[in-house]
Design a protein around this nucleic acid. Structure first.
Lengths: 222, 222
DNA sequence: CATTTAATTGAACGTTCGTTCTAATTGAAC
DNA sequence: GTTCAATTAGAACGAACGTTCAATTAAATG
């Protein structure tokens, strides 16, 4: 059983696939592009991953498995530090935002692939792709919602959920379009500076969370 | 020159294309899918739109042209009502959010196409697609940034730009994944209720904007 | 009614796609 | 050194892709 460079080969395929999927989307990326990028024969991909869908699945699992784990670990760490008291909204936000934002600090070549992939799966309507991530996402969502409810016990549950969705949305947007943001703001915003982005987001959203229930705005939409 | 059902025919193609692009993405949607949905011959699409890219361009222009116009008009209306005084943050947010959120109130069949399309182009890395929308987006962005600066003169410009990006991001996320949000929140959030979404977003984000410059949080990212 | 022009059609082009199959090659175990 | 299973490679499959073109139909013009 020649393992010569087995892990390295699988990893190379995953790397190339991640880049290709991020750049061109699931349908836009071709298996031949991927194997060219990985320096591997076409059939090798099928040997290891079975199909294009299986390859995508492996790419997502490799990237978002650790992310989910990190999410939960950071939150637990903050809960430990709070010693039984509720974690502050600021800390909860930091736990939500820091692990994904760290991806922006990756080497430039890798960064685009990782972040684009993340942004992409957010809008991916493909049922199969959604299915792959549903379980992981649910778990993370539930953990943070629980922390938020503990931290803001007076806030209506639905309001907290709405606000959490807004945070996820803003995060996905940043990860997905760092380049666009930099261009459209004429350089005023630099998405690569993760600690700056984190500070901006925490400052912005924590104020929003603390204001929950205050607004009684009701506007006609028609 | 037989116009029999000329506009109706072009419109039917655009409708079908919008749905297809929204469901499967640019690469995922095939011209044959589109013409099947429109009840039109394959060559007809090329007669009117030249190519697949031209079709996508037409789809985007039809949808986002009016949206841009509405954006600017609502903002101008609020500025008129303010009679020279700066428009409140709440009103600015309403002007930003209302026109796109109205799309959620469209008939169910159309809604998914429209919103998904919007979400999709947010993450579309295709340079050509980005190019199509760059001009329009820049104009709208600039108008709202100007209003925000007038309304919050003490806030650093970069902070306002960051916050505006967060709002666009959250908005795109809602428009893009209404179904996912409903499922993941177990029905607690109903993205179709546009006035509710608007109220939640305005309440959340206006508090964030008003808190600009307060936070001095600085966290290590490493 | 004849003619011209716009609109529509069916068929086909060459290319690329995801996938499969069979044969060759490799490293480890006996 | 032979055996055997794991791995790699080349070639090909049928299907679907975007696009083109010549021929046909329908409306408008004289």
């Amino acid at each position: 059983m020649p393992k010569r460079a087995k892990e390295s080969r699988q990893a190379k395929i995953l790397d190339a696939a991640e880049t290709a999927f991020a750049d061109d989307g699931y349908n836009g990326a071709s298996m031949r592009d991927i194997v060219r990028g990985a320096g591997v024969n076409l059939a090798t991909v099928y040997y290891y991953f079975g199909s294009k869908n299986g390859l995508m699945e492996a790419v997502l699992k490799r990237r978002f498995g650790p992310l989910r784990q990190e999410h939960l670990e950071v939150l637990r760490q903050f809960e430990r530090e709070a010693k039984g008291r509720p974690v502050s909204v600021e800390k909860i936000l930091e736990a939500m935002l820091l692990p994904p934002l760290r991806l922006l600090a990756a080497p430039a070549a890798k960064r685009q692939a990782v972040t684009r992939l993340m942004g992409r799966i957010v809008t991916e309507p493909d049922a199969q792709t959604q299915e792959i991530l549903h379980g992981q996402r649910s778990e993370v969502r539930a953990a943070f919602l629980k922390a938020l409810r503990a931290s803001l016990p007076k806030a209506p549950a639905a309001d907290l959920q709405w606000r959490m969705e807004f945070v996820w949305g803003a995060l996905a947007f940043i990860l997905c379009n760092p380049r666009t943001i930099e261009v459209e703001t004429h350089g005023a915003c630099n998405p690569v500076d993760a600690s700056k982005v984190l500070a901006e987001m925490v400052g912005f959203f924590s104020a929003g969370f603390r204001a929950v229930g205050i607004s009684t705005l009701m506007v006609s939409v028609t």
